[in-house]
Amino acid sequence: MIERTGVVTFKGNPITLVGNEVKVGDQAPNFQVLANDLSPVTLDRFQGVRILSAVPSLDTGVCDAQTRRFNEEAAKANGITVITVSVDLPFAQKRWCGAAGLDNVITLSDHRDLSFGHAYGVVMKELRLLARSVFVLDASGNVRYVEYVSEGTNHPNYDVAIQAAKALL
């Protein structure tokens, strides 16, 4: 498996990312993760314009804010599917969604085998968490926007990601 250094830090510490780097123009890699009911889910289950939002853990402030912001934008923009992926257990994701009252974001768990993380090159080797990142896919499954957030405790560039997705509608 490919390892990349010098791409991101977490709390100021250098982190090794495991997996292939995804670039604009690539065909979006498929993956298999778990839904909140433990059923397997793959990327091809979702059609149309998609925002894939990877977060380290929904139970942290920035991840919570990131998921809420994309939820708000999905509610305003008909035709965009927002998928948040973390290594949180499906039970924790379900609890978080219920407590947060969010219904426009799909949360999926990559805890079992890091399929998404490896496919998108966002596994933080030292922490076994996903690096904060955003991928926008068009209806044909082409990657149209990528952001690997350089410091894991920072927010992504919401406006640019959302504009990239809206431009595909």
Results as ranks from 00 to 15, higher is better:
residue 143 V to S: 08
residue 69 R to Y: 07
residue 101 G to T: 05
residue 46 F to I: 07
residue 75 A to I: 07
residue 73 E to W: 07
residue 144 R to N: 01
residue 135 F to R: 14
residue 141 G to V: 09
residue 82 V to F: 03
residue 35 A to P: 00
residue 127 L to P: 02
residue 130 L to I: 08
residue 97 C to E: 05
residue 52 L to M: 08
residue 144 R to W: 02
residue 143 V to K: 05
residue 84 T to P: 02
residue 54 A to G: 03
residue 96 W to Q: 04
residue 73 E to H: 06
residue 78 N to A: 15
residue 66 Q to K: 06
residue 132 R to V: 08
residue 74 A to R: 04
residue 48 G to K: 14
residue 69 R to I: 01
residue 69 R to V: 01
residue 39 S to P: 00
residue 122 V to H: 01
residue 118 H to S: 15
residue 80 I to P: 01
residue 48 G to Y: 12
residue 156 P to I: 11
residue 152 G to P: 02
residue 146 V to W: 02
residue 148 Y to I: 10
residue 88 D to N: 09
residue 156 P to H: 11
residue 122 V to I: 12
residue 75 A to Y: 03
residue 144 R to P: 00
residue 123 V to C: 08
residue 61 G to L: 13
residue 140 S to H: 13
residue 59 D to F: 05
residue 121 G to E: 10
residue 136 V to K: 14
residue 150 S to Y: 10
residue 66 Q to T: 14
residue 70 F to R: 03
residue 59 D to I: 05
residue 121 G to W: 10
residue 124 M to A: 14
residue 81 T to A: 12
residue 73 E to F: 05
residue 63 C to A: 15
residue 50 R to M: 15
residue 77 A to I: 09
residue 119 A to G: 08
residue 126 E to D: 10
residue 36 N to V: 15
residue 58 L to W: 00
residue 87 V to G: 00
residue 70 F to C: 07
residue 87 V to M: 03
residue 153 T to V: 12
residue 123 V to Q: 07
residue 144 R to H: 01
residue 37 D to C: 01
residue 77 A to L: 09
residue 46 F to D: 04
residue 40 P to C: 11
residue 112 R to S: 06
residue 99 A to G: 10
residue 55 V to S: 13
residue 64 D to W: 05
residue 119 A to L: 09
residue 129 L to F: 03
residue 71 N to W: 04
residue 89 L to R: 04
residue 35 A to R: 10
residue 97 C to P: 00
residue 136 V to E: 11
residue 63 C to E: 01
residue 67 T to S: 10
residue 46 F to R: 13
residue 148 Y to F: 12
residue 127 L to V: 01
residue 151 E to N: 14
residue 54 A to F: 06
residue 152 G to H: 15
residue 113 D to V: 14
residue 137 L to V: 03
residue 96 W to E: 07
residue 82 V to T: 05
residue 138 D to M: 10
residue 119 A to D: 09
residue 57 S to R: 05
residue 39 S to R: 13
residue 157 N to E: 09
residue 131 A to R: 02
residue 49 V to M: 04
residue 141 G to F: 08
residue 108 L to Y: 03
residue 45 R to M: 15
residue 61 G to H: 13
residue 48 G to Q: 11
residue 149 V to H: 12
residue 97 C to M: 13
residue 79 G to M: 12
residue 95 R to Y: 03
residue 47 Q to K: 15
residue 125 K to V: 00
residue 79 G to V: 07
